[in-house]
Amino acid sequence: MHKHFLSIERLTQTFPDGKGGTLTVFENASFGIGKGEFVCILGHSGCGKSTIMNVLAGLSVPTSGVVKMDGVAVSGPSLDRGVVFQNYSLLPWLSALKNVTFGVKARYRDWSREKVLEHATKYLAMVGLEGDVIHRKPSQLSGGMRQRVSIARAFANQPKLLLLDEPFGALDALTRGTIQEELLKVWSQTEQTVFMITHDIDEAILLADRILLMTNGPFARVAESVEITISRPRTRTEIVDHPNYYAIRNHLVQFLGKRSRDLAGQRSEVESQSPDTVRIDLSETTPDPEPKPSPTRLKAVNG
């Protein structure tokens, strides 16, 4: 296995199941993320996505296994790993701007007040929040605005790794679209490494370089790593015309609709469970032995 910026090695998480036994959420999960990569993880509710993310963030300790960033094992939360939580997690007694400066002050402790303010304002402007709104409290902002503040807070800290837990889960489709594009814009300007949890297939295709697919729990596995062979920059309206779009989408739908269940509950015989790499590219000039991939036949090309 070649060296990754972030490598997750044989991660296992068990919880007491409340009946005296143990619940194994996932076992020996291993995967890596390259520097500057945007990776999304897709899987059904309860399969353990948030659990993985909490481990990556250093907020919880796994039962066994290690997470290494830049070769160093993660042992607790760090400013190098910014987190956007599922429910925004803004501090409600601070204004939008103060929520961002809260983070900036923690990151750059020697900066002057003016510099902190300027930096925070810049990142709020990047997600489209300018003028009076930034002085409002979170309760006076819409859900979309709150999520923007939360994203601005994370990006403003310029962490080496950004972890997003279903950042758009609570938003309507229109707002979702706008913020997704803002996220892409900010990401392309900052070249940060991003690990994002989502439920939304189209969102994952739009944003990710690679999508990790998880089977259902318990004993969930990161079964596949699907490359998104659609060139950037991408927009919502244009990607649907890309020749690879529907092929990739079908593959994902098939996985989540059927195979995530079929593969579920299979305990690992091997020690380490790296995901199979799946590459679907119909636009490649080289003759493809399987021009129209279907989930069953794809297994042959997995590697």
Partner: peptide
Amino acid sequence: TDWVNVARTHEL
């Protein structure tokens, strides 16, 4: 806990 986690991820 979310707010405490915010503090933790900011290394306070």
